[in-house]
Design a protein around this nucleic acid. Structure first.
Length: 679
RNA sequence: GCUGGCGUAGCUCAAUCGGUAGAGCACCGGUUUUGUAAACCGGCGGUUAGGGGUUCAAGUCCCCUUGCCAGCUCCA
């Protein structure tokens, strides 16, 4: 069925172009770039088969499909500009990304500088100016090879070789007729370069050809482009805002945490940061009582046999830290085999036998620092015989975990080597899974709503090709995850084959205050660990059964959650979490005694209150308290001393409130500072 | 881990071609006694990330190590 707006197109064509479908609508509405037919976007330059009944809709510059077209087209203009300015530079690929585009170049003279970016941007402006059309040509494989051979574009020829036989090979050209620039490209593209005025080059970076570190390093130029200069400006402002909120910057300014090179990528939470961190833990912990969780405390380092049982020794050691003891060292030195081992290690190193070397080194180690809590929880489960009556059993643990992350990936608090999770494992009977899952979802949403996150998207990651367990188990696990969502009426997206090798999972994607999305909590179904640890419970039938294990976390890593929460709030923690809830500032030193007394009183009411009694002027004290993001500034001058009151200034309302008595203020702040309810 | 960049006082940043390491804030002392985003004066503070090299002379040039930043790859 052809949609109504195409009615003016008289004949129904099987082979057609967007122009045929859109007719004079195209001339009336310059925002239209092409059409989307059965999920695929076609530009004005491309002919395609239109099957009857296909879903057809116009693609406009400012919708997501249109933006991708604009960005990809801008990438072509970037490559054009680069080849004009830096002859001898070879082109590779230049796709659109979530927020823009990039183009990878093989540039013999090394990386681009910031000045280069400015020059390239100016050149792009000139290329775009003429409103020159994009043109598409379909060519034979031989012609394509001949063309790019002549141009000495070896990467393009590699790409041509990768195009399956029988598929169309197309070229896109753009620019003034006398200086057209051509690229091997599937499209789609904008009608002409006039659509590409709102662009900005953002940064340069190295990247490998085809993402493989054995391949040559290319120079990647990142840029972004939008439908209009206004949209571009808005995006750049969002980037500015993100920079202002960067938790690494705020962490330093607000004295929340620090790092030291003696413990790289392992945060030190300073008193204020630790307060917020512990507040988040306390919040979950208090909720655990109502949700029926038991909390345990478990060791930090284990005999390696634990991880051999769990499978970490075979699959996870490159992410683990190891420990040793004097006893163990003495044992190793006393072992006559050691001398031989050292020779073998040296030989493996010389011959570059990485995996052999790893095996030898691992053989010397007998203690490892835990990267996850699940193995210890399995040990606890096995502490005694379990009955079906005690299932589901929910075991929570906030113990520290250590994972050796590769040097280049660590990032502030968001990706660290030492962290804790609001981790818990639910051991249950298979038929209890669904109920457990839906009550976890409810719990999860309650916590996020209470913390001011309302936009949450769920992805259901299903069975990957490489997996363990029976199809029956996978059917049951995926079914339970799906039905639990249906029951609470939540939409979700399926991420096919993205599950863990031992079970399917949810990924919760949470959107923050400035529109960025983060994967935080998770829930995973696991049949493997109960098998490996031979966990059992006695059923009503008196026989032994194997429980299912659910791994679940609401915050995920507390460190990472804190980093996002800092950026979400911009450091303006709500009163119930704020390390300092109110600060008394005296107008002059005449009010010092009352200021100290007020502080004593408010503290006696359980409030976290500091006082700035120093000789600075009021304005300076106010400024400092505001920079510290204290929720209430309590001004105390002669009037307040006389009335035993304070004059509060609210951070969140950004204005002065009426003066109120000490007791009344304490009452109000106490109410405001009680943790939010959820559920 | 890979590629590139960076590391100067607690913080933010200067230091021309290789030629005596400096400012503001913070901190300490003093003066000022202040009504909603920075009063004034003085002082303390440095083996320029660490190590090696080149040089008459190194913050500056070269090499190694380390940490950080951006990206790649990986991930909570």
């Amino acid at each position: 069925m052809v949609p109504s707006f195409f009615k003016e197109s008289t004949a129904f064509m099987s082979r057609c172009t967007a122009r045929d479908l859109l007719g004079d609508r195209l001339d009336r509405d310059k925002q239209i770039l092409g059409v989307k037919v059965a999920g695929k976007v076609y530009d004005l330059h491309t002919a395609f088969e239109l099957t009857e009944g296909a879903d057809v809709s116009p693609v406009r510059v400012d919708d997501p499909d249109g933006l991708r077209v604009v960005r990809h087209s801008t990438a072509h203009v970037l490559a054009d500009a680069v080849q004009r300015l830096f002859p001898g530079t070879k082109v590779t690929i230049g796709p659109a990304t979530a927020n823009g585009f990039y183009y990878d170049f093989d540039k013999p003279s090394g990386p681009f500088t910031d000045e280069d970016l400015a020059t390239i941007e100016a050149e792009m402006g000139r290329i775009v100016e003429g409103n020159h059309p994009f043109r598409r040509d379909v060519v034979s494989r031989d012609d394509a090879h001949a063309l790019f051979a002549k141009m000495n574009e070896s990467y393009k020829r590699e790409l041509i070789n990768a195009i399956p036989a029988g598929e169309e090979i197309s070229l896109y050209r753009h620019g003034a007729p006398e200086s057209e620039w051509v690229d091997l490209c599937e499209g789609p593209h904008v009608p002409h370069t006039g659509y590409l005025r709102a662009h900005k080059l953002v940064s340069v970076a190295g990247a490998y050809w085809r993402g493989d570190e054995r391949n040559p390093m290319l120079q990647r130029v990142y840029g972004t482009a939008f439908a209009s200069p206004g949209d571009l400006r808005k995006h750049l402002q969002q980037l500015e805002e993100a920079k202002k909120r960067d938790h690494r910057k705020l962490g330093k300014e607000l004295e929340l945490f620090m790092f030291h090179e003696y413990a790289p990528a392992m945060p030190f939470l300073l008193p204020k940061g630790a307060h917020v961190y512990n507040g988040l833990i306390d919040y979950i912990r208090s909720a655990y009582r109502g949700e029926g969780y038991d909390e345990v405390v478990t060791p930090q380092i284990f005999d390696k046999r634990l991880f051999e049982t769990s499978g970490h020794w075979a699959n996870y050691t490159e992410n683990m830290f190891f420990a040793t003891s004097e006893d163990r060292l003495a044992e190793l030195f006393a072992d006559p085999a050691l001398a031989g081992t050292i020779d073998k290690i040296q030989a493996a190193r010389r011959s570059g036998d990485e995996s052999g070397l790893q095996e030898l080194l691992k053989g010397l180690v007998d203690i490892a620092v835990k990267p996850m809590n699940c193995p210890s929880h399995c040990l606890i489960y096995r502490q005694r015989r379990r009955s079906y009556r005690e299932l589901p059993w929910r075991v929570a643990d906030f113990c520290r975990l250590h994972r050796y992350e590769r040097g280049g990936v660590v990032h502030g608090l968001a990706r660290v080597r030492s962290f804790a999770q609001d981790d818990a494992h639910i051991f249950c009977q298979p038929e209890q899974m669904e109920t457990e899952i839906s009550s976890f979802i409810r719990f999860f949403y309650g916590v996020y709503a209470a913390l001011g996150f309302t936009k949450i998207a769920i992805k259901l990651a299903t069975r990957p090709d490489k997996r363990i367990g029976t199809d029956e188990q996978w059917d049951m696990a995926e079914g339970a995850l799906e039905q639990a969502l249906a029951k609470v009426n939540l939409p979700f997206e399926v991420a096919p084959k993205e599950g863990a090798f031992y079970g399917p999972k949810y990924e919760f994607h949470v959107e923050d205050a400035i529109g960025r999305s983060w994967q935080l909590g998770t829930l995973q179904v696991d049949y493997a660990l109960p098998d490996r640890f031979e966990l059992e419970y006695t059923g009503t039938d008196g026989a032994a059964h194997r429980p299912v294990m659910l791994h679940r976390a609401i915050y995920g890593s507390l460190e990472r959650f804190l980093s996002i929460y800092i950026e979400h709030t911009g450091g303006n923690f709500p009163a119930w979490l704020a390390p300092e809830q109110a600060r008394i500032v005296t107008v002059s030193e005449k009010q010092v005694d009352y200021g100290a007394e007020a502080r004593r009183y408010l503290r006696s009411r359980g409030l976290r209150v500091e006082a700035d009694l120093g000789p600075d002027k009021l304005g300076a004290k106010i400024r400092e308290a505001r920079l510290a993001r204290v929720p209430y500034i309590l001004v105390v001058g002669d009037k307040e001393v006389e009335n035993r009151s304070v004059s509060p200034r609210s951070r969140d309302l950004d204005r002065n409130l009426d003066a109120e008595g000490l007791e009344a203020f304490a009452e109000r702040l106490q109410t405001e500072a009680s943790p939010p309810a959820f559920g």
